[in-house]
Amino acid sequence: MMSFPIWLPATLMAGALQAWRTAIQRRVSKELSVNAAGLVRYLYGLPFTMLLLGGYRMLFATPLPSPDPLFLLFCLGGGLAQIIATNLLIMAFAYRNFVVGTAYAKTEAVQGAILSFLLMGERLHPLAWAGIGCGVMGVMLLSTGGKRMGPMDFARALGQPAALTGIASGFFFALTAIGIRRATQEVGGNDPVLAALIVLAVTVAMQTAMQGGFLLLREPGQMGRVFRNWRVSGQVGLLSSLGSACWFTGFATAPVALVRIVGQIEVAFTLGFGHFYLGERMRRSEVVGLILVAGGVVLALMGSL
């Protein structure tokens, strides 16, 4: 029996914050390279992440646990997978519009369900699997961009750069979720929220070092642009840290696949930001796709009861 009070609102909030952050980050990516735009969320998110951890400890007077040494390895693996996934997602934006690029990456729900079963033995109720299927149908409909496509047309579309990049992004996001869940399990203690914040702080610090070091070696000229765009980049960092704190809390308290299935509701927020914030037109197919995604979330929740 799964308890909703912690992981469910955390996952729903994570979806809203991630959609908002991604919308702003797309504007940043127009002025920065792929690697520089990726660094923004870690570099500017690190101070906010530390504040979240420090504030939580002060508020609840919680002592720091003693994590298992494997904790650092899982943080490193999950952090690296997220860097790769984020860069691939930014690359997908170059091929199609904001909503479609994100929709391809949302295949991470089904990929996460399969990987979490193979790597962690997490099992789902048949209703949850039905929810995955419904949600995948929804995001695939969104990925057509309103075009009428037969089975063969869709099969050919899957070979296009946007599809391949988005699906690859979803795969690495799924690996990220598994790495983070395993890291929280190695923290120890009885407070899953504290474990999530500790994993978040360590992971973001590692990501800042990895992505920042790579940028200095390969694209040193981009570093100045990263700091010159601090006003917008600071917003990305704040939303990234808040969203990641919610995602990590979800991973610490519920199976990866279940969190990712419910997290597909982010597509609804993505449609809203794409329409109102970026001025992209909402098509009828996107509305139908949204309904399918919402139906998938409902089925997944029914399967978790």
Results as ranks from 00 to 15, higher is better:
residue 2 M to W: 10
residue 3 S to R: 15
residue 7 W to I: 06
residue 11 T to D: 06
residue 13 M to S: 15
residue 16 A to D: 00
residue 16 A to M: 13
residue 17 L to H: 03
residue 18 Q to F: 12
residue 20 W to T: 10
residue 21 R to G: 05
residue 23 A to N: 00
residue 23 A to T: 02
residue 25 Q to E: 08
residue 28 V to C: 03
residue 32 L to E: 07
residue 35 N to R: 14
residue 36 A to V: 07
residue 36 A to F: 03
residue 40 V to K: 01
residue 43 L to W: 04
residue 48 F to W: 14
residue 55 G to S: 01
residue 57 R to H: 01
residue 58 M to V: 14
residue 58 M to H: 11
residue 63 P to V: 00
residue 64 L to M: 14
residue 65 P to A: 01
residue 68 D to S: 14
residue 76 L to Q: 03
residue 76 L to E: 00
residue 78 G to A: 02
residue 79 G to D: 00
residue 81 A to P: 02
residue 84 I to N: 06
residue 88 L to C: 01
residue 92 A to C: 11
residue 100 V to T: 11
residue 101 G to L: 07
residue 102 T to S: 13
residue 107 T to I: 10
residue 128 A to K: 10
residue 138 G to C: 06
residue 139 V to Y: 01
residue 140 M to E: 12
residue 144 T to C: 11
residue 159 G to W: 11
residue 160 Q to H: 12
residue 161 P to C: 04
residue 161 P to L: 08
residue 164 L to R: 13
residue 166 G to W: 01
residue 166 G to F: 00
residue 169 S to V: 06
residue 169 S to W: 02
residue 171 F to K: 05
residue 171 F to C: 09
residue 171 F to Y: 11
residue 176 T to V: 00
residue 178 I to G: 01
residue 179 G to K: 01
residue 184 T to F: 04
residue 185 Q to M: 13
residue 186 E to F: 11
residue 192 P to S: 08
residue 193 V to S: 04
residue 195 A to V: 06
residue 197 L to T: 02
residue 202 V to E: 04
residue 206 M to V: 08
residue 208 T to R: 00
residue 212 G to P: 08
residue 214 F to G: 04
residue 216 L to Y: 05
residue 217 L to T: 11
residue 218 R to L: 13
residue 218 R to K: 15
residue 222 Q to E: 15
residue 228 R to E: 14
residue 232 V to W: 13
residue 234 G to L: 05
residue 236 V to P: 05
residue 237 G to N: 05
residue 238 L to N: 00
residue 241 S to C: 11
residue 243 G to N: 02
residue 245 A to G: 11
residue 245 A to W: 06
residue 255 P to T: 05
residue 260 R to A: 12
residue 265 I to L: 15
residue 272 G to L: 10
residue 272 G to W: 05
residue 275 H to E: 08
residue 277 Y to H: 13
residue 292 L to V: 09
residue 292 L to D: 06
residue 294 A to I: 15
residue 299 L to D: 07
residue 304 S to V: 09
